[in-house]
Design a protein around this nucleic acid. Structure first.
Length: 141
RNA sequence: GCAGCCGGGCGGUCUGUCGCUGGCGGUUCGCAAGAGCCGAAAGAGGAAAGUCCGGGCAGCACAGGGCAUCCCACUUCCUAAUGUAGAAGCAGUCCGUAAGGGUUGAGUAAUGCAGAAGAAAAUAACAACAGCUUCGGCUGAAAUGGUGAGAAGGUGAGGUAAGAGCUCACCAGCGGCAUGGUGACAUGCCGGCUGUGCAUCUUGGGAGCUGCAAGUUCAUGUAAACCACCCGAGAGAGGGUAGCCCGCCCGAGUUGACGAAGGUCUGAGCAGCAAUGCAACAAGGCCGGGUCUCAUGCGGUGGAGGGUAGAACGCUAGAGCCAUGGGGUGACUCAUGGAGUAGAUAAAUGACAGACACGCUCUUCGGAGUGUACAGAACCCGGCUUAUAGCCCGACUGCUUUC
RNA sequence: CGGGAUGUAGUACAGUUGGUAGUAUACUUGGUUUGGGACCAAGGGGUCGCACGUUCGAGUCGUGUCAUCCCGA
């Protein structure tokens, strides 16, 4: 079941969301998306199996898509792209002592196709995975 | 056949792979709560939209009546629904050759207003008209001209000095009668002779406020917070008396002059047997008030807040839907029968691939290309409005062709 | 999702009872000054968000529509 995306993998806590957008966190643009991510300490102990390695949040502003239909469509595309490509990120996070909180913000005015969203999602996730490894190595040295 | 108009209906289908949401069944872990996994079914609309109305439901408020305020207003009917809602009509007006469509609609007794223009916006008379004239004007009349949205019913004929509903015919309006209609009204006859719009007003009817983020329950927690009252224990200035008095306590109340102020002067007054001392932001007096107050408590009740953003109920079977038959022009209604799990909460209903269907274009008639709208539930219903590719059914209108 | 408000000159705002659309600032021209600013005088600039209706006449009244903003556990 590598392609699942359950409810526990979604960010719902207002505290965490405010922290992410408060500033100081790494962010990157991969048109048509902007991604903000933050490292979080693992809650509980090692035996907590239900806790996912990364949680996400999708945001499509009303300013860019006026109709609810288009906003829903965009969110579904982003979720689908993450679902199919999250193994890139999870492989990098395996064995690390922190988890990741990600926020995807839409920054386009026209509805893209699934092909473009999927492509930029792959690119973005691989770049994040690289950055995590780079940050991790100096600490060990 | 083409174009149009009205009413009603539909508004893509199937397969595969990977997912999402809630419930159901099974299973693993767990004392339990619950968590994971597996399975087979279910999972956006005609407008879910706008929020323009109405109702259910919920909380708060509430003796009864009147006034004020606000809303509604052709007729009859329908409904849970009181309405610029709905149905079927009526009248006026505008658009269209027409089928039709848009829009307006209680009453006018009284009062007020009507800019600019115009002589005058309601006790009419500027020019022009007619008669008389002392040429200053007077009298008559309201057809003609100009202004205006609106000028004292309209058109024509008779009539007259000139004119005029002064008289007549037709038309519009008003009143009365008759007939038809449940009714708004329509038609006919008769009568006298008639200005427009708006507001106040009058008449009749209606209206408590807020909205599911309503409202209810649980958990976490600042917290033994704060304020008020009550209660329990404790401490101390009370005593005498019939009223009341003394003592004690409290007061940002009152009690000089000069100066901006620091301050200086006076000594009102007080204490004391007296010397003397204190003395004007003070003491003391006068006046007013109290005689129970203070401190304290894992105590009780109530009040008014701040914070947390977790869970559950409300939450989907409802004035509901479909079919047949009866009633009604219709909205709708009655009877019988039938089917029936969308319920999210940083918010599911999706992604990709392929096939089909339908429309359009091209065509070598094999096919190829391209398009398939408007739009996404959030407590639930009824109505309205707005957006909408394409298609189907029925009634009707115009033009054309054939018989 | 529910409730509410506002659209007027480049900008910020007035405009009660329907009757010639205004104020401040900015802009243009002229004056004043050696020059600039300030000051004085004159002037231009408006689809009253859009469409339809009511009315003789709509910024104002009614309906629809578009945009912006605020409040609600």
């Amino acid at each position: 079941m590598p392609y699942a995306l359950t409810k526990s993998e979604r960010l719902t806590s207002q505290l965490v969301i405010e922290k992410i957008f408060a500033g100081g966190n790494a962010s990157m643009a991969a048109f048509p998306l902007r991604i903000v991510y933050m490292q979080m300490e693992k809650q509980g102990g090692e035996d907590v199996t239900g806790e996912p390695l990364a949680s996400i949040l999708v945001s499509v502003p009303k300013k860019r898509f006026r109709h609810a239909v288009d906003r829903n469509r965009m969110k579904r595309l982003i979720r689908e792209a993450y679902r199919l490509n999250k193994h890139i990120l999870w492989d990098a996070l395996e064995g690390k002592d922190f988890r990741l909180a990600l926020a995807f913000v839409c920054i386009t005015d026209t509805l893209p196709t699934f092909y473009t969203v999927n492509k930029s999602m792959k690119k973005a996730l691989t770049r994040i995975a690289e950055r995590i490894c780079v940050n991790d190595n100096p600490d060990k040295l």
